[in-house]
Computed example of a mutant assay.
Amino acid sequence: MQTLSEPPTRWSWVEIDTGVLRRNTRAFKSLIGSRQRLCCVVKADAYGHGAAACAKIMHAAGADMFAVATVLEGAALRASGVKLPILLLSEPPVTAIDMLLENDIMPSVYTPEFAWAYGERAAALGRVGKYHMAINTGMNRIGVHYADAAEFRRSVDFHMGLECDGTFTHFATADEPTGWDHQLQCKRFTEAIDNLRAEGFDPGIVHCDNTPGSILNKNMHFDMIRAGIGLYGLQPCERTRSVLPLEPVMSVRARVTNTMYPAMGEGVGYGFTFRVPRSRMEICTLPIGYADGLPRILSNRMEVLFDGQRIQQVGNICMDQFMVAIGSTSFRPVPVREAEIGDLMTVVGRDGDAEITLDELAAKCGTINYELACGFGMRLEKIYV
Rank of each mutant, 00 (worst) to 15 (best):
Gln185Trp: 10
Ile86Met: 01
Ser90Ala: 09
His132Arg: 04
Asp165Val: 14
Thr173Asn: 06
Glu113Gly: 04
Asn140Ile: 10
His145Arg: 10
Ala63Thr: 14
Ala67Thr: 07
Trp180Ser: 02
Met106Lys: 08
Gly126Val: 12
Val156Ile: 15
Leu84His: 02
Gly129Ile: 13
Asp98Pro: 02
Pro92His: 03
Asp175Pro: 01
Thr167Asp: 02
Met160Glu: 13
Asp64Ala: 03
Ile142Ser: 07
Ala117Thr: 08
Thr173His: 09
Met65Lys: 03
Pro85Lys: 02
Tyr146Val: 08
Asp181Tyr: 09
His145Met: 07
Pro177Gly: 00
Leu125Met: 14
Val68Trp: 08
Phe158Thr: 02
Pro85Leu: 04
Glu102Gln: 04
Phe189Gly: 12
Trp180Gly: 00
Pro177Gln: 01
Ala122His: 00
Ala150Met: 04
Ala69Arg: 07
Thr111Asn: 09
Leu87Gln: 06
Pro112Asn: 08
Tyr110Cys: 12
Ile97Val: 10
Ala134Lys: 15
Ser90Lys: 09
Met160Thr: 09
Arg154Met: 06
Glu113Ser: 06
Trp180Met: 06
Thr178Ile: 08
Ala172His: 07
Ala117Ile: 09
His132Pro: 10
Asp64Arg: 01
Thr70Asn: 02
Ala75His: 06
Asp181Leu: 12
Pro112Ser: 12
Asp165Gly: 08
Met160Pro: 10
Gly129Lys: 13
Phe114Ala: 03
Ala122Thr: 12
Arg188Ala: 10
Ile193His: 07
Ser90Trp: 07
Ile135Pro: 00
Val128Met: 12
Ser90Phe: 07
Val144Ser: 00
Pro177Val: 01
Gly161Arg: 14
Lys130Arg: 15
Asn136Arg: 13
Asp181Pro: 02
Ile86Glu: 01
Gly179His: 06
Glu163Lys: 14
Ala149Leu: 09
Cys186Lys: 15
Val109Thr: 13
Asp181Gln: 09
Thr111Ala: 09
Arg154Ser: 09
Ala115Met: 14
